[in-house]
């Protein structure tokens, strides 16, 4: 493995362990490492690659792979993705093992329950921030956000209908 690939692996493995809350939480640090520290890409490319990664489905942590691809091609993508995934996945693996070992401890489930409102609150916040970005295209988008939220909350309909409805509404009412 070349020195560059090892450097990419190291940079993203570090980011992986800092990314509490996922890729968006670690984006400023990713910028600092890739743009300022290593100078692998410039500001504009960083922003464009981020936008590119958001156009694909799936976890937004995949932004790491896109950056790796830009720096060192397919091998860079593989190394960046592995670096971003392996350390945190190993931690999650050990945490799962710990909860299995401790499953008879009386305090485990209540303690875990204490984390639930934080997780839901942060999910709600993520949705609100996404909604804020969507509203920059016009306040009529508020209706799409609200209807989407109500359908998911109040019905068992597939989210696919919400996405399809959003696409049609976006076409009929461009920003």
């Amino acid at each position: 493995m070349s020195v560059l690939l090892l450097q990419i692996l190291g940079a993203f493995a570090t980011l992986s362990l800092l990314a509490v809350g996922g890729a968006n939480a670690v984006l400023p640090e990713m910028h600092r490492q890739l743009v300022e520290l290593h100078g692998w890409l410039d500001d504009r490319t960083f922003a464009e690659l981020y936008a590119l990664s958001q156009a694909a489905p799936g976890p937004n942590i995949l932004v790491a792979g896109v950056m790796g691809w830009w720096i060192a091609g397919g091998a860079g993508m593989a190394v960046a993705t592995l670096g971003m995934l392996l350390p945190s996945a190993a931690l999650a693996w050990s945490m799962a093992g710990l909860t299995i070992r401790l499953r008879h401890a009386a305090w485990l489930r209540p303690a875990q329950a204490g984390l639930v409102p934080i997780a839901i609150g942060l999910m709600l916040a993520a949705g609100l921030v996404m909604a804020g970005a969507a509203l920059e295209g016009g306040w009529h988008r508020l209706a799409i956000v609200a209807i989407g939220a109500l359908v998911i909350w109040g019905t068992g309909w597939s989210p696919l209908w919400v996405l399809a409805g959003g696409a049609v509404a976006g076409l009929l009412l461009p920003g």
Partner: peptide, 20 residues
């Protein structure tokens, strides 16, 4: 495309709805 912007708004609503 404008369609994708509508999808982004709907996706935001879906995340909010899931949390609720």
């Amino acid at each position: 495309a404008p369609a994708m912007q509508g999808v982004a708004a709907a996706a935001a609503g879906m995340v909010i709805g899931t949390a609720l």
